[in-house]
Design a protein around this nucleic acid. Structure first.
Lengths: 188, 188
DNA sequence: CGCCCCATGTAAGACGTTACATGATTGA
DNA sequence: TCAATCATGTAACGTCTTACATGGGGCG
């Protein structure tokens, strides 16, 4: 009865709605015009997703009675929605997150500071860092094993993946350092 | 009647089958055990996908009558399948490829050398490089515009994306250089 | 014999894509 | 008034996920 799953799009919407109550149209604009193009801006994806979130009690919509009478529904998150968002963000990072779920981890991190606070953000980074180290080791091993059997483009593609991981790892260090500097500076 | 679309999984299967005729089980093993974990290894995804490819005349299966009598269907690509694979690989790279289609481009490149030859591989790289430069410019601009309105984790996540692009760009240079060196060396 | 791996499949359901439809409002 | 944009929706379709089912074969 309870925990039916939330799709990637669902989490993206939930996170955005926590930042600022918005209409479906607003959200679609974000997906079509910003760097969040990984998410579908099509009405056939967004509106049903919002409906599902509402049915699960994670968001609530209210009709806006602004100047014009053009109907426009503004959604905002509920306490339950915020709780789900938190749960999603602080989930321990797995190898699976690195191998399959393309950039879902990054979205979780992007939302993390405002939803669960900077301490949790750093924790997330450290968890990610640890998994990346493992993942890198696995990839390196696989490359070494398969190298001789690959075409040049095959090997290069593999190396691209490896470099991407290394770049991520370097980024986690930079990100952690950024937070630590922040802490030393103004605690405001 | 003709050109119904092929899914990402479909192209992955087609590319693997060009490398080596395999059974559905073999292919699933590749997805579950190698770096190609982005693709589903579940029977509910792989077998129907193979069936679709077969119905479109892109692959053909033949029952193996090996030592044991355990049924096992080996698939191999048809000329039509190879043609579709080529078309997919040499498609011009778009901004959309960079923003949405996570690593589809990389798969295309991985297969490219053996399917369309090293010259086309380099062309693909140069095309990718050009699009990456544009994409980087767009991202930088967006970051500059939104920077002040973002949380630290939001900004860092964005920067992670940027760094990823830069890493890709650097990789294209390395990859192109690798091919050029190759050409100078042994033309064998 | 029981257990695990090989190897294939199917069925239900969730989700996204594509395309179409509707109506209100703004601006030329 | 006509077109474009705002804003929401729906229907058909394809594909993936999840879970279950089936049988052969090797091994202890």
């Amino acid at each position: 009865m309870k925990a039916q799953k939330i799709s990637r799009l669902g989490y993206a919407l939930l996170g955005l709605l926590r930042q600022r109550p918005s209409s479906g149209y607003d959200l679609r604009k974000i997906f079509s015009s910003t760097a969040m193009k990984t998410y579908s801006d099509s009405p056939g994806a967004v509106y049903p997703a919002l409906r599902r979130l509402e049915q699960q009690g994670l968001i609530r919509g209210s009709l806006e009675h602004g100047s014009g009478l053009r109907r426009r529904q503004i959604f905002h998150h509920t306490p339950k929605g915020l709780a789900e968002l938190k749960k999603w963000i602080v989930r321990p990072i797995t190898q699976d997150d690195l191998a399959r779920r393309d950039l879902e981890v990054l979205l979780r991190f992007a939302f993390s500071e405002e939803v669960v606070g900077p301490v949790a953000s750093v924790q997330l980074l450290k968890s990610l860092q640890a998994e990346l180290v493992v993942h890198l080791a696995v990839l390196s091993e696989q490359l070494a094993a398969a190298r001789s059997k690959m075409s040049i483009s095959g090997r290069l593609a593999f190396e691209c993946g490896l470099r991407g991981c290394e770049s991520w790892l370097e980024w986690t260090r930079y990100a952690i350092a950024t937070y630590e500097k922040q802490e030393k500076g103004g605690k405001s």
